[in-house]
Structures are given as structure tokens and as C-alpha cells.
């Protein structure tokens, strides 16, 4: 009885001559493989994961395409042999091989979202409530070994956290790139030059930023290069070093939109 039902499930695809599910599966596997190839080729992979793990995406592209090819071969063989598709025994779980249409639709979701929605890194709108920079890991004191003008936002946040008195950083030259973020309580002459840091992928993204005193209006989320120096300032009721820019210019989104702790 169970065996009969199993056979029925398995033959379901072949009843109408054209194994639609098998064709869809092949298309999905090849499609996902190509999606990974496109991610790598266009560089938009860095919108999603730490560049340290990009080799894993090469592996994924390769395996998807190999599986897609295997599936295509299986499809052609089953058409050639018509109703005797499998010589070998499938000795695993009976639900394998016969999945529902809903499951196929679910597998298509990443392809649909990946192709229909323009790939963008997390920006100002994804910053949740107040920025907290206290849980930034890594070698905090190493930031002091980098010359001030070469420090990125992450290095500065580490240096500010690690310094016994943050005021000692006043007077140092700053040259950083980030996106414009403005909290609800900010005054009109201040913004945060911000970045997301990720260690693995955007699931662990943490937003960090440096306060900038700048009277001119800048579009939210725009990428800017801020050059100037730290001066004693007041930010959200706290006396702390604030960037006093000599120059703020709009720039292209960097190749790596996230910083890697």
C-alpha cells in the first residue's frame, strides 16, 4: 500500500508526457547558478556578504550549474526512455523527488527577488533606532597604529571607544567615506557619516557612524566623503569629538559598501 502510493507519487510527473516539474527544477538550478555568476561578475555580491566569503559563492555557482546539468541529463534520458526513467533504486525518503508546487515556488523566491528588485546595500533607512558602537569587536587598539588620515569610520569608532579620554583625538585629521544618516532628534546642522559593518553577511549588520557638524543640506542616504578634523562638540547632549569638515563632497558608492571588522 505504501509502496503503491510511493510509485504513484513518483510517476505523477510522467503521466502527462511532459515532466513539467522536472523542467522547472532544471530551470531553477541553472537560473540560480547564473544568478550567482551575475552576482560575482557585477560585484553586487558585496551588497550581501563579507568579501572574505566570496569564494563560497564561486562554489555555489559551480555546484548549481553541475546540478542543473545533471538534472538536464536526467530530463533528456527520461524522455528518451519515456516511461522507464530510473534504472537505479531510490532508497531514500519517499518524499524526495516528488515535491509540491508550493515548494518549487518557494525555491524561485530568491531568483524573483534577486532579479526584480534592484540590488542595493543597506542604507540610512535600514538603520534601526540609535546607533550603538559599543559592541564592535576585533582588535580595538590596532586602530591607533593607523595614521589618522587613513582611518575609516570603523577605525575611528574603535579609536574613540578605546581612548581613555576621547578628547585626545581632537585636532586629528579625518578623511572618511560613508552615507548620510539623520536621526529624528538631530539638529539641522548635524548629520552622521555612517557605514554598516558586517562580519559574515547582512544578517549581522551593525550601523556605526561619526557625528559631523555641517550646515548645508545633504540628501539622506547619499554617499559622501568628509574631510576635516575632530573638534570638541556637542552631539545629542553629549560633549564629544565631532567632525568639523573643510570639505564634504558627494561620491560614488564604494566598491565595498560595508566595513569588515
Amino acid at each position: 500500500m505504501e509502496a503503491a502510493e510511493h510509485l504513484h507519487e513518483h510517476d505523477h510527473n510522467h503521466e502527462h508526457g511532459v515532466p513539467v516539474q522536472e523542467i522547472l527544477k532544471t530551470a531553477l538550478l541553472i537560473g540560480l547558478g547564473l544568478y550567482f555568476v551575475v552576482l560575482i561578475a557585477t560585484g553586487s555580491l558585496t551588497n550581501y556578504i563579507n568579501v572574505r566569503f566570496s569564494w563560497l559563492s564561486y562554489v555555489a555557482a559551480l555546484i548549481f550549474l553541475l546540478l542543473g546539468a545533471t538534472s538536464a541529463v536526467r530530463l533528456m534520458q527520461s524522455r528518451r526512455h519515456d516511461h522507464h526513467p530510473h534504472e537505479h533504486q531510490h532508497d531514500h525518503d519517499p518524499e524526495h523527488g516528488s515535491i509540491s508546487w508550493a515548494a518549487l515556488a518557494v525555491i524561485a523566491v530568491p531568483l524573483v527577488l534577486g532579479t526584480l528588485i534592484p540590488s542595493r546595500p543597506l542604507g540610512a533607512a535600514a538603520v534601526d533606532s540609535e546607533l550603538s558602537a559599543n559592541n564592535i569587536g576585533g582588535d580595538v587598539t590596532a586602530a591607533f597604529n593607523i595614521p589618522p588620515e587613513q582611518r575609516n569610520i570603523l577605525d575611528w569608532v574603535r579609536a574613540l571607544n578605546a581612548a581613555e579620554d576621547p578628547a585626545t583625538l581632537n585636532g586629528q585629521t579625518v578623511d572618511v567615506v560613508g552615507f548620510v544618516y539623520r536621526g529624528e532628534a538631530y539638529t539641522s546642522d548635524q548629520f552622521l557619516v555612517a557605514r554598516f559593518t558586517i562580519s559574515c553577511c547582512v544578517a549581522d549588520a551593525v550601523a556605526i557612524g561619526l557625528p559631523v557638524a555641517w550646515p548645508e543640506d545633504l540628501p539622506l542616504d547619499a554617499w559622501v566623503r568628509v574631510r576635516g578634523q575632530f573638534v570638541p562638540g556637542d552631539f545629542q547632549g553629549e560633549t564629544r569629538p565631532v567632525i568639523q569638515p573643510t570639505r564634504v563632497e558627494l561620491v560614488e558608492q564604494p566598491e565595498h559598501p560595508y566595513l569588515y571588522p
Binding site: Y48, I49, L122, A205
Partner: peptide
């Protein structure tokens, strides 16, 4: 629209990072 874009980035991030391990 912005929410959908953020949602899509977050979802694809997990998927892209995880799927190689699933395939292996």
C-alpha cells in the same frame, strides 16, 4: 518600496551566505 528593498537585501544576504553550505 524602501522596506521591500531592505527586506530583499537582508533575505538574499542570508540566502547567499548559507546556500553554499547547503549545497556542500
Amino acid at each position: 518600496v524602501v522596506l521591500l528593498s531592505i527586506f530583499s537585501t537582508r533575505f538574499l544576504g542570508i540566502f547567499i551566505e548559507a546556500v553554499p553550505f547547503l549545497l556542500l
